[in-house]
């Protein structure tokens, strides 16, 4: 479903990835763990095709980085859910609109839209805060809005880049439980983190990355 084949990628600074191969299968929960600067975010960027490899190729669903045309990138992104350490929410609109936004810009029908937004807000436990501006929510709640936004398009995989990086231990625990619940329901999760304490648990695979190489 998601494959990286022998990838090399380097930024102009010289840092990057060398000969990285990995795969994430449907329904899997994969940790990508490594110290700061190891190349975790770079791996995720290659998957959502923000960058393209110098060598090797990336396959996501039916999209191949070697044959990828720029205008297909939106179609690829609709198959992915992506969350970040800094939430990347829009603070000029409500929680509901932050999530509905995804369906609006990808052209869903209005009736279908409302149903799906409310369902996914219920899933992350924020139905009651749907009309609030996310600026008034706690960090954990904001990340849950981001997760709802990532899930509303029913992605084949949820990419999480350090999703608990800005959260206190309680909120971190909450988000981890939510990610697990989502995974149990069938969505694959690929989570990048440098927090070794988070890693582990049943049915989870751990990939270690250091200095741009997979160990």
């Amino acid at each position: 479903m998601v494959h990286l084949h022998n990838i090399s990628y380097h930024y102009s600074s010289g840092a990057g990835l060398s000969s990285v191969s990995l795969a994430a299968n449907p329904g899997e929960f994969v940790y990508l763990i490594g110290p700061s600067g190891a190349g975790k975010s770079t791996v995720l960027k290659l998957i959502y095709m923000d960058i393209f490899p110098e060598r090797g190729h990336v396959i996501v669903d039916k999209f191949n980085s070697m044959k990828m045309k720029k205008r297909y990138i939106p179609l690829l992104r609709r198959k992915l859910g992506i969350i970040f350490q800094d939430f990347k929410l829009l603070y000029d609109r409500s929680v509901y609109d932050n999530v509905a936004f995804v369906l609006q810009v990808t052209g869903a029908k209005k009736k279908e839209l409302k149903k799906r937004v409310l369902r996914v807000l219920a899933e992350v436990g924020l139905s009651h805060k749907r009309n609030q501006n996310p600026i008034h929510l706690s960090g954990g709640e904001q990340q849950r809005v981001a997760i709802a936004r990532a899930l509303v398009n029913e992605p084949i995989i949820l990419l999480a880049d350090e999703p608990t990086g800005n959260l206190d231990p309680v909120a971190t625990e909450e988000i981890m439980r939510l990610l697990e619940k989502i995974n149990v329901k069938g969505t694959a999760v690929l989570m990048a983190t440098h927090d070794y304490q988070l890693v582990g648990g049943p049915r989870k695979r751990v990939l270690r990355i250091e200095n741009g190489r997979l160990l």
């Binding site: 959502y48 939106p74 179609l75 992506i82 990347k88 810009v105 990808t106």
Partner: peptide, 10 residues
């Protein structure tokens, strides 16, 4: 940028 991230066309 968020629109691009969630797959909005140009």
């Amino acid at each position: 940028n968020i629109m691009k991230l969630v797959g909005a066309t140009k």
